[in-house]
Design a binder for these strands. Structure first.
Ligand SMILES: [Mn+2]
Ligand SMILES: [Mn+2]
Ligand SMILES: [Zn+2]
Ligand SMILES: [Zn+2]
Lengths: 128, 128
DNA sequence: ATTTAAATAATAACAGTTCCTATTATTAGA
DNA sequence: TCTAATAATAGGAACTGTTATTATTTAAAT
């Protein structure tokens, strides 16, 4: 994989945020420093970076997001604002072992997403 | 929601399989008993059935699948054949509570997908 | 039976993503 | 340092899964 300025910019953008950005968001950012970068280039590089295990691709409903955090970790997702934050689930590895033993499946990974409302949206409304 | 023959067929198809079918697969099946049903009708009804909590929509990577099983449960996914099977994870509810308490998030649900290889593909190769 | 509105088939529109191709840029080697 | 080979690019077309539009059909209440 040969060096390219575009790929460096794209990589840096993904590493600059905890927001699990979409390709389109990365594209918007990238255009600021390189006005005629193309969306195709962004997608191609995000895929290459994923293949090289430099970033991770995660799926949020029906769209792809990108994550610089390659550690095995889980996510918390707000149904109101879509915000997605990292979380460390304690039993993670044990879960995998348990399932591996119980089923005829060779488990390599587990993806856990907690769905709910972030502090901005879980204002507990008092009845009355 | 008024009765329709199309919706009944679609519902029955989803309830007839454990394979977590895609809209397109349901469409193919439905055409057998109702040759000029349209794909739009399939999508519209799958969404309605989901809204009525008669079935569940789940996302597999970037595409939607449908599940008659409304119990809270998890999935095992084979990276080789894409097969997706139901699984009951024991600590599920406790996981939610723990996360709820630790983070400023009001958790309503958790989605757990185990990634691996099903028995058809996990033939353990002995290093010679 | 008549009326009303929900549901349909057909098809266009859409969003996210991948693919294509002529041009440009990186880099290994002379 | 210049050149040649070719990886990567910009721009745009194509593709895929899904949703929206609309004229027509259908369920079902009166
Ligand atoms: Mn993350
Ligand atoms: Mn299921
Ligand atoms: Zn929120
Ligand atoms: Zn398999």
């Amino acid at each position: 994989m040969r060096y390219s300025q575009q790929r460096e910019i794209i990589r840096d953008i993904v590493f600059s945020t905890n927001s699990h950005p979409t390709a389109d968001w990365v594209y918007g950012k990238a255009k600021k420093s390189m006005p005629n970068i193309s969306l195709g280039t962004v997608y191609r590089n995000l895929k290459q970076l994923t293949d090289q295990h430099i970033i991770k691709t995660i799926y949020d409903g029906t769209i792809a997001r990108y994550d610089w955090n390659k550690e095995s970790h889980d996510h918390l997702k707000c149904v109101d604002c879509g915000e997605m934050v990292d979380i460390q689930t304690s039993n993670r590895e044990r879960l995998k072992t348990v399932v591996n033993d119980k089923h005829n499946f060779d488990i390599t990974d587990v993806e856990i997403t907690f769905i709910g409302k972030c502090h901005k949206h879980n204002k507990k409304e008092k009845k009355e």
